[in-house]
Computed example of a mutant assay.
Amino acid sequence: MNSEVYLDTVVIGSGILGLSIAYYISKKFPNMTIAVLEKNPTFGVETSSRNSEVIHAGIYYKKNSLKAKYCKLGKEMIYDICKKNSIQFNKCGKFIVINNDEQYSNLIQIKENAFYNDVDLKYLDKNEMSNIENLSHFNGALWSSETGDLPPIL
């Protein structure tokens, strides 16, 4: 009896990256034999289980950096995969707030950085903030409509 198994590809780790890589390979090469090896009793219990489930817009990364490029691309892919597979997500947005006028220059710097990364942020002044429940005490904010979250995996 021959117990040898021949595999084309082995992916080590069944966290979000390992499973995503295995999925991608299976779609690109449907006849390929793939094995995912995991040391834990189930998938996604190490780093992936400590994920904040935030879908980042790419606001803070340096201009033209790979992090900025792939954060934006990843965000678009996550929303697309969720829509295609009826996975619940919440494109809830995010406020970056300031408490006083001295912090205004920090907001402008963040807004400029986001602009260079092709991320749209809207500035809200104190008057606009006064119309938003629980935010009326802030002096201003940036609104990121592209930020979202996913329900916890486990």
Rank of each mutant, 00 (worst) to 15 (best):
P30Y: 08
Y123V: 04
K83V: 10
T42A: 15
L124V: 01
E146A: 14
E112Y: 08
N31I: 01
L66N: 11
N64S: 15
S144W: 10
A141Q: 02
N106V: 05
L37W: 15
L154V: 05
E4P: 03
E128A: 15
H137D: 05
C71S: 09
A114C: 06
Y123T: 08
N113W: 07
L19Q: 05
E146G: 04
S65F: 06
V54N: 03
T47R: 11
I132N: 03
Y70S: 04
I96N: 08
E4D: 11
E133H: 05
P151M: 13
S52R: 08
K91E: 15
I153Q: 11
I16E: 01
K91V: 06
G148H: 04
V54I: 15
T9C: 14
N31H: 05
V36S: 11
G93Q: 11
E112F: 05
Q88K: 15
D125V: 01
N99R: 10
N139T: 01
N2L: 10
I34M: 07
T42D: 15
Y60E: 03
V97I: 13
M32S: 14
P30I: 08
Y24D: 12
N99D: 11
N127D: 14
K28N: 10
L73F: 06
I98P: 00
Y116V: 01
K91F: 13
L121T: 01
Q88C: 13
D149F: 09
A22H: 02
D149S: 13
S52P: 02
K67H: 06
L121A: 01
L37M: 14
D149V: 06
I25Q: 08
K75C: 09
N117Q: 09
K84T: 12
L66Y: 14
L121N: 02
M77V: 12
E53D: 14
S48W: 05
F29Q: 14
I87W: 10
A114E: 00
K84N: 14
M77Y: 05
Y23S: 13
F29I: 12
I34H: 07
V5E: 13
V10F: 07
K83G: 02
A114H: 02
G44E: 03
N51T: 07
T147E: 06
D8E: 11
N106H: 05
S130F: 06
C71T: 11
D101N: 10
I12G: 06
I110T: 14
N40C: 12
Q109A: 13
D8I: 04
M1A: 13
G58E: 00
R50T: 06
E112T: 13
E76K: 01
F89D: 02
V119H: 02
S49L: 13
P152D: 11
N99P: 03
I98N: 03
Y24C: 12
S136F: 13
A68R: 00
A114I: 07
Y60N: 02
V45M: 14
K94M: 12
F138Q: 00
E133Y: 07
V10D: 05
I108F: 04
L154S: 10
A57P: 02
S49P: 04
C92F: 07
S14W: 00
I16H: 03
S145G: 11
K75G: 05
G93W: 08
S52W: 12
K83T: 12
L73G: 02
E76L: 07
K91M: 10
C92T: 12
K94Y: 09
F115V: 06
